[in-house]
Amino acid sequence: MSAPLSPNFNLSAAVAIALISVTAVGAGAVGAAASPSAVPTISLLDGKTFVAQSGEKGKQASNKDTIAFRYGRFLSEGCSPYGFGDAPYQATVDGAAVRFHAETHSPTHGTMIWDGIVKDDAIEATSIWNRERWYWKIKREYWYRGQRKK
């Protein structure tokens, strides 16, 4: 047998609190186990796009690239025609700069491992392109230097 409700009990307030709690957990509140696709990730470089010169390590610039950070994902537009899509990136603060790391994959051209640093409106990065077949391997390193797109 349950006790009778107190005259000060507000059923509407109790229901509202319960709904807010369920909604917060479903939206990815701290401690919740939300699906990564259900909650957009915001990272340190999100919303920034850079236009960069690039070239093979030890050589002069031979290409232009646009590097974009959106919703926790990294994209090299110059690599898109080769099947390299966007990928999650990790970013950490290093003094007045932000360091980042990403790995992009192409079904036909292999993997690119990206590391770079953004300070103010400038970006400097490297990528290592790996493509392996059973009878040969390619491993090339590229550099990127550019400015934030206005």
Rank of each mutant, 00 (worst) to 15 (best):
M1P: 12
P4Q: 09
P7A: 08
P7H: 07
F9V: 06
N10L: 08
L11F: 09
L11W: 07
S12K: 13
S12F: 08
V15D: 07
V15G: 00
A18G: 13
A18D: 08
I20K: 11
T23A: 15
A24L: 13
A24M: 06
V25P: 02
V25Q: 14
G26R: 11
G28T: 04
A29H: 03
A32K: 08
A34R: 09
S37D: 15
S37V: 14
A38Y: 06
A38P: 05
V39Y: 07
P40E: 12
P40C: 05
I42T: 15
S43G: 14
L45M: 05
D46A: 02
G47Y: 05
T49N: 07
F50Y: 09
F50I: 00
A52R: 00
Q53Y: 08
S54I: 03
S54G: 15
G55E: 05
E56Q: 14
K57E: 10
G58T: 03
G58E: 01
K59I: 01
Q60S: 15
A61C: 05
K64E: 12
T66Y: 01
A68L: 06
F69L: 02
R70Q: 15
Y71A: 15
S76L: 04
S80N: 11
P81R: 11
P81Y: 09
Y82S: 13
F84A: 04
F84E: 03
D86E: 14
A87H: 03
A87F: 03
T92G: 04
T92C: 00
G95R: 00
A96P: 11
V98K: 01
V98R: 01
H101A: 15
S106E: 07
S106Q: 08
P107E: 10
H109E: 15
G110F: 05
G110S: 07
W114R: 08
D115W: 07
K119V: 12
D121Q: 11
A122E: 14
I123C: 01
A125E: 00
S127Y: 12
I128N: 12
I128R: 15
R131L: 15
W134N: 06
W134D: 14
W134F: 12
Y135L: 06
W136Q: 10
I138M: 15
R140P: 00
R140V: 14
W143N: 03
R145P: 00
G146S: 04
K150M: 09
